[in-house]
């Protein structure tokens, strides 16, 4: 018997953090997504321990400043896309505002670190979200196009195909067939 799941990643990650940090012994506050404020300085050794514990869950403690910033960019993009109410501004403007850097700087930084452009990343995330909505929430293409701010279903389909190389309907077909075969 099969049950299909949908994940609330925000809640999921928060719970894991809380879980792991409760035994850690250091007072902390979770500052938004991906940031923990420890109320006192944590010794390196202890931090290593934490890193080891987190590693199991795929949680990495980022050190590099550049990487931190890139991660922030990713987080904001993620937030933008997954929001119920998509903010009606261009990504470039939004990022520049939120992070207090010029878009040009952010863009270059992002490409250097991730080897891909912010635009591409945004598209990737959107399509990824579209896949989720398509599969798990069973939204129609029209609804998804609306939710993700595409001008039309055709536009969404085109971008979907450009990004993945297959059409949304083929995608659905394949995943459905996979589920049938229990893969």
């Amino acid at each position: 018997m099969r049950a299909f799941l949908k994940f609330d990643y925000n809640l999921l990650t928060k719970k894991i953090l809380e879980d792991k940090l409760s035994d850690f012994g250091y007072k902390y506050t979770i500052q938004g997504f991906g940031e923990i404020e420890f109320h006192e300085k944590v010794p390196e050794a202890k931090l290593e321990e934490l890193r080891y514990i987190f590693d199991e869950y795929g949680i990495t403690i980022i050190e590099n400043q550049k990487t931190v910033l890139v991660q922030k960019i990713k987080d904001i993009i993620h937030e933008m896309i997954y929001a119920e109410e998509v903010p009606n501004v261009k990504v470039s403007v939004y990022l520049a505002e939120k992070l207090n850097h010029s878009y040009g700087y952010l863009s270059n930084l992002f490409s250097d670190v991730t080897y891909t452009s912010i635009e591409n990343y945004v598209i990737l995330q959107k399509i990824e979200f579209a896949k989720q909505l398509f599969l798990n929430d069973k939204l129609s293409l029209t609804e998804i196009a609306f939710r993700l701010n595409y001008s039309s279903v055709a536009h969404l389909s085109k971008q979907f195909k450009n990004t993945t190389g297959i059409t949304p309907s083929a995608f659905l077909r394949i995943i459905a067939s996979r589920r049938e075969r229990n893969l």
């Binding site: 389909s157 085109k158 195909k161 309907s169 083929a170």
Partner: peptide, 8 residues
């Protein structure tokens, strides 16, 4: 639609 997509 698929054809249109292929020849987009």
């Amino acid at each position: 639609d698929n054809s249109k997509l292929e020849l987009a």
